[in-house]
Write a protein that binds this DNA or RNA. Sequence first.
DNA 1: GAACAGGTTAAGTATTTGTTAAGAACGTAA
DNA 2: TTACGTTCTTAACAAATACTTAACCTGTTC
Lengths: 229, 229
Amino acid sequence: MGKKPNFKVLVVDDEEPILELLRYNLEKEGYDVKIAENGQVGVEIAKKFKPDLVLLDIMMPVMDGVEACRQIRANAELVNTHVVFLTARSEEYSEVAAFDVGADDYITKPIKPRALMSRINALFRRDTKGKSTAAQIVIEDLVIDRSSYTVRLKGKEINLPKKEFELLYFLALNPNKVFSRDDLLQNIWGSDVYVLARTVDVHIRKVREKIGDDYITTVKGVGYKFNLG
Amino acid sequence: MGKKPNFKVLVVDDEEPILELLRYNLEKEGYDVKIAENGQVGVEIAKKFKPDLVLLDIMMPVMDGVEACRQIRANAELVNTHVVFLTARSEEYSEVAAFDVGADDYITKPIKPRALMSRINALFRRDTKGKSTAAQIVIEDLVIDRSSYTVRLKGKEINLPKKEFELLYFLALNPNKVFSRDDLLQNIWGSDVYVLARTVDVHIRKVREKIGDDYITTVKGVGYKFNLG
DNA sequence: GAACAGGTTAAGTATTTGTTAAGAACGTAA
DNA sequence: TTACGTTCTTAACAAATACTTAACCTGTTC
């Protein structure tokens, strides 16, 4: 289904079935998943993998979750990593310890995949918020409104599909700056999407078809730009 | 993370770990937090701090929660302060007393931070809503009346079930703004309810069935919006 | 004119949404 | 309580529409 923008999740648990359950569900949601069977291995992988989220069982052999969390929190490269504990209902006391060590949330077993996914998605949603996005860009007769996802040209509303809208929005956000097709693919499609550069041309054409040829200029051999002035 | 508009919370409990657990979670949510270890200290701090919410343990040395609540309620400057009791499951008898003394809510230990935060946020949401909530929204032929929970289209009354009404109401309250299915679930269903995003589609369809297709527009790949203008 | 870059078009594929229906959950009244 | 009617959620399939590709066209440069 919906592709997540490259979010990486590390699952650390000593129970094989739980690892598989979580891996399956997370991958289905589009996350990049790695697993570890105890805290020590978990911490090692975390250092290399630099996950955005670690799901950490508390009771584990070799190194328990609380200690693993402490070590993760101690690593400067992992400051932006979320840590969520998985605990059996009985282990209530570790709750306090977990938060002391810097957990972001904790989830009690038995795990309900749907609820878990919902909470994880919410966690990342908060992250992605606050992106620098102008609510509205006004250039001459053109009004590009991100909150309503509409474009108005001389007051007349124009309907743009998602990719076309984002293409126009991105270019207009950086007027007079030329972007190569690859730049545009990176910024609008995302870094993990593989599509041909010429795909951009087709979208550019569709946008021009709707707002006219005046706003977007081709810089031959380089790319496209939105002109202002 | 999410900054709350300066809401102040006072936590009164004699157990250190619980105080810390609550303080940690509340501060993470963006609240301004103070703590007290018994009712007497709690009341004193409350008078100066003027919190928007007091989380009050019932069983405490020096002065118990019920008495503390009574004193808070007796203070004219604290009329708008919410009081929520924290109790062990066994202390059921105090429930009646708690509400008699003017408690707003009642939460049993062991405390689940996630659920607690959810309830607290909901409490404040109700507060802030009061201002931005229109009793009646009138758009062209459509009248949405929150107090009577009814919708009239061209004068004819239409019966909408709760979810459908709230969906329409929420969208109409923020016209022209696109909301993703997840946004809608968060705002209407609540942050602790886990249902599939496609559930929204079904409700949208039912609303459209009743008020026609003109008011709610689909923005493909993004979500839904109520159109105005 | 050959090589190259971009424009344009159309077709196939993929994705998203619409719609329906079944049953779970909920509330209410007997 | 049970029975009933309603509402909510899910799942499945159909329909709509967006996206990507590839092919062909145009114009420019050397």
